[in-house]
């Protein structure tokens, strides 16, 4: 059975200046034990999608206005707050982008990890602290016995992210949502944290929903990739396939923007082609173009692209929402 099935999710923000459709009809699915990466630029709605799963979108102003999120066959949209709280931290764990601010400065590391076990497993504080120590060891924090009694300000960013991971996996959840887990970390620490996530996944067999804008992270960890742009999914494929044969012009643009460092390059970059960039800007959420949302920036845009949004259709072994790439291209009349 599919572990998590998001279908046509719409999460909108009701602000004074209008309705912002941060997530506008996104469908994703994750099988047990699978790692699905959701990539895209800042503001494409990938984090809001992740927050929607746990019902953590701040309301007001945000609200899920349509679609469904099924976890282990159970509908999460409209689930009573009490039932949702029972899932959070137990069946679904989450880690965040900013390890520096995601831990409470006034509580010890051990208490913050143990809290999950007290809440969901009925542990006493003493039992929870003992388990917290084991968890810290599991996420490779050195000297866990001492660390449980320490406050977060004593730990580096990388160590704090490990503490966050320990907290998220304390109840051995079936799904771990990782919202930009390595963005705030140094490159060397990033690799260690990704490595840790991979080993934890192997050990507990949990699925991971990985939200990131870093395609390097995706290549290293994900089984499948969904690319989001301006609140919609524009392409999805197995990781190797996506990197080898990107379909959507936006995905191609993203891949073209990754710098390559070749060790055997004697010119050390002097004669290499200039790094490409995607011209233009992401459209504002309250001023979406009527057709394909990428059309204003797309080098291959056709007249049809500006009239109606393209649907996701099979393309290159995955799916893509692009008139130019679809295996069964519709005629202009059909669209009109």
């Amino acid at each position: 059975m599919t572990l998590l099935a998001i279908d046509d999710l719409q999460t909108h923000f009701f602000t004074r200046s209008g309705i912002l459709k941060a997530v506008d009809g996104v469908s994703l699915s994750i099988e047990p034990g699978e790692v699905l990466a959701v990539v895209g630029e800042s503001g494409c709605g990938k984090s809001v999608t992740a927050f929607s799963v746990l019902g953590l979108v701040p309301n007001p102003p945000g609200r899920i206005v349509g679609g469904s999120i099924r976890f282990e066959g159970r509908e999460l949209v409209g689930l009573p707050a009490r039932d949702m709280r029972a899932l959070r931290g137990d069946r679904i764990g989450m880690i965040f982008q900013e390890p520096m601010t995601s831990l409470n400065p006034a509580l010890t590391v051990g208490d913050q990890i143990g809290e999950v076990l007290v809440r969901h497993r009925g542990f006493t504080r003493r039992q929870a602290l003992t388990r917290a120590e084991e968890l810290l060891d599991l996420v490779r924090v050195p000297d866990p016995r001492r660390r449980v009694t320490e406050y977060p300000h004593r730990l580096s960013g990388g160590m704090r992210q490990r503490v966050m991971i320990a907290m998220a996996i304390a109840c051995e959840p079936k799904l771990l949502i990782a919202d930009e887990p390595t963005t705030a970390l140094d490159v060397t620490v990033q690799a260690q944290v990704l490595d840790l996530l991979a080993s934890i996944r192997a050990r507990f067999g949990m699925a991971i929903l990985l939200i990131t804008h870093d395609l390097g992270v995706v290549a290293e960890t994900a089984d499948r990739v969904a690319v989001m742009y301006a609140g919609r999914k524009v392409e999805e494929a197995a990781t190797a396939r996506l990197f080898a044969d990107p379909q959507h012009p936006y995905t191609r643009g993203l891949l073209g923007a990754i710098p390559e460092v070749a060790d055997d390059d004697p010119a050390m970059g002097r004669d290499r082609p200039r790094l490409s960039e995607i011209p233009g800007m992401v459209p504002a959420l309250d001023a979406m173009p009527p057709g394909c949302r990428f059309a204003p920036r797309c080098p291959e845009a056709m007249p049809v692209c500006r009239t109606a949004p393209p649907a996701l259709r099979p393309a290159g072994g995955g799916v893509a929402a692009c008139y130019a790439r679809q295996d069964d291209r519709p005629s202009l009349e059909e669209v009109a």
């Binding site: 746990l54 953590l56 709280r85 029972a86 899932l87 959070r88 931290g89 137990d90 764990g93 989450m94 965040f96 900013e98 601010t101 995601s102 831990l103 409470n104 400065p105 006034a106 509580l107 809290e115 999950v116 809440r119 969901h120 966050m164 907290m167 998220a168």
Partner: peptide, 26 residues
């Protein structure tokens, strides 16, 4: 509005418990 309150929510704590344990002291 602090991030660690979101963390506390993601742990499944109730709003009352978050208020007392995570917010009040800070």
């Amino acid at each position: 509005n602090q991030d660690y309150v979101t963390t506390a929510r993601a742990k499944g704590l109730s709003e009352g418990r978050i208020t007392v344990r995570h917010v009040l002291r800070n």
